[in-house]
Design a protein around this nucleic acid. Structure first.
Lengths: 342, 342
DNA sequence: ATGAAAGCGCTAACAT
DNA sequence: ATGTTAGCGCTTTCAT
């Protein structure tokens, strides 16, 4: 199986880390002076600064952030509870970058799409006394967060809102996105459009399915057999495809409601993927390399992440400000699959 | 642009968090007793446990992990400095899951493929006094870590080894992987195989290019114009493709050295992708949806992540154990692109 | 079985 | 400009 090689370097000793007091003694100054130097306090004489700096280098001293945080009362860290760490997560990346600019580090934890994990992750962040929490909610009920919010913990949700507690949120414009997809297909000659998406128990699944129904109704198209909301499981997807594209008046185009659904649909369609028009909600890596390349409604991950940080900072600065919900526009990116004619 | 909605709930007050002392006073016991209850010390009477628990619930008390860590000396956290947070990162996910089983939380930070960022991230982890650090190295030189390793910080590298300091590592079997890819193509009738991969300044790029040259030499095939190692840039990739597949004795098959290169190659090839055989080093999401589906040499991310945690824990338990390097096998997954005949 | 006091490593009030 | 003293919130001797 795996092959192990033992290197030449023998073991190492475990040393004890120097503290600020050690530095003070080595430099021959008071503890407080070292603290001042470490924090770039300008009221320290040149000579002492030099001596302290030298001692720091000599001892390889690194301040203990845990102690700093405990004393200062702020952690300089924000938590991000996201659905997944394994898949691509552009929003997390955007959160990370925006946080860096605000001199904050991000503690990212995966909820693995499980309510209990979400709760564990979030409560763990609270015990770490992070300066704020960004959640991609799995739960529909966040009562467990009420005491934390009461105690002043800034909480921002993205993609879906929190349930049962007042928290800021940044959401994509799902309704408009579905509308764009629908109109795009209509403009390319389609009259019977189907939708396969997430369960309506999930916020985004609900919003998108509802928007789709509204589009069809407004457009006078058929609704029966065209709307399929439910779990993202191969069997269900297969059935939905059969229903939508199999009857006497089959659909000629499809809107998929999220990335997972899209992938399942494509797997099922296989080589037939080029025979129906598809517009997918959510962009993903390599969508442009598929044949035909996939037309998508893309969420603006960079804006979502940046806005989440903005809301968090605003809440931290003014805990009494009104709760705010920001809707971020989406964008239709034509690549081929959505421009196929019936 | 983005649309903001102000919610109905007016602002909230910022409360002060209760401390252990508050709980003690509310329960009418000593501080020490609360600590015992919080830590499930069995030597506390039933009645006192009940009173303390009640006070904890009443006050919504949550222990401050920073203070716990400071006092205990361990943080219960390990750092993971990975190249990217935006793209899919199965190894990080595996690290996270293995860490959970060991009751550790993971602090993941992105190095953005920059040496300086790597250093900042890693030093930041050191200041947080994490219990260990897992690095996907960008730097070739990790001297800056020497004092930390001396001080007893467990460090494990994956994908590439560290440079200049003794640290455990878990690497993929690059040479065998390239060998598998090469033999696979030869078995399908190819005599002229080209390789396009990463810069040889990078460890994996070096190992894979070297292994490829060894394969070609051993097989008696032509080497000129067949090996292209360098930066992953569209222009370079395009040139490499022209050279390898354009001459009088063009290659009929291609091995790509990493995921980024593979994607660039596919973008350039476009519809021609089906005309040459390709085996790609690194698997990625949706590789099976491409036409033809991509034959890959897949790294075992789950094993890599798990092993990294194992090495970290072993090092933490016994700082003087010899430095170890673990090589994880790779697997060839035939999907179509690698089975095309010349 | 319970409690008083010391201290983890640092910063924030106060001196001086 | 520099030092002294008191905590941050918790765990850990060491009594009792």
């Amino acid at each position: 199986m795996t092959e192990r090689t033992v290197g030449g370097t023998a073991g190492r000793r475990r040393g004890k880390r120097p503290t600020m007091l050690d530095v003070a003694r080595t430099a021959g100054v008071a503890l407080r002076t070292v603290s001042r130097v470490v924090n770039d306090d300008p009221t320290v004489g040149q000579d002492l600064v030099a001596r302290v700096r030298a001692a720091i280098v000599t001892l390889d001293y690194e301040p203990d952030e845990r102690a700093q945080q405990l004393r200062r009362g702020v952690s300089g860290t924000i938590g991000a509870a996201v659905r997944n760490l394994a898949d691509a997560h552009p929003v997390l990346s955007a959160i990370d970058q925006a946080a860096r600019k605000a001199k904050l580090t991000v503690l990212a934890m995966s909820t693995e799409d499980e309510e209990q994990r979400e709760r564990e992750a979030v409560m763990s962040m609270c015990r770490k006394r992070v300066d704020g929490i960004i959640i991609e909610p799995i739960s529909a009920n966040h009562q467990y967060l009420a005491p934390e919010i009461e105690a002043g913990m800034p909480v921002v949700a993205f993609d879906r809102p929190t349930g049962g507690v007042p928290a800021d949120a940044v959401l994509s414009d799902n309704a408009t996105g579905i509308g764009m997809a629908f109109r795009h297909l209509v403009q390319h000659g389609h009259r019977r459009v189907a939708y396969i998406g997430d369960h309506e128990r999930i916020f985004t699944g609900r919003e998108r399915a509802a928007a789709f129904r509204a589009c069809v109704t407004a457009g006078g198209g058929p609704l029966e057999g065209m709307v399929h909301a439910g779990a993202v499981e191969p069997a269900r997807i297969a059935g939905a495809l059969t229903t939508a594209f199999g009857g006497p008046a089959p659909a000629t185009a499809l809107i998929t409601g999220n990335a997972a659904t899209t992938v399942e649909v494509l797997r099922h369609l296989g080589a037939d993927a080029g025979r129906i028009a598809i517009v997918a909600f959510d962009d993903f890596l390599l969508a442009d390399l598929l044949r035909p390349a996939l037309t998508v409604v893309a969420q603006n991950s960079a804006t979502i992440g940046r806005t989440a940080i903005e809301l968090l900072l605003a809440r931290a600065a003014d805990p009494s400000r009104p709760v705010e919900s920001v809707t971020v526009p989406v964008e239709l990116i034509p690549r081929g699959s959505g421009e196929l004619r019936p």
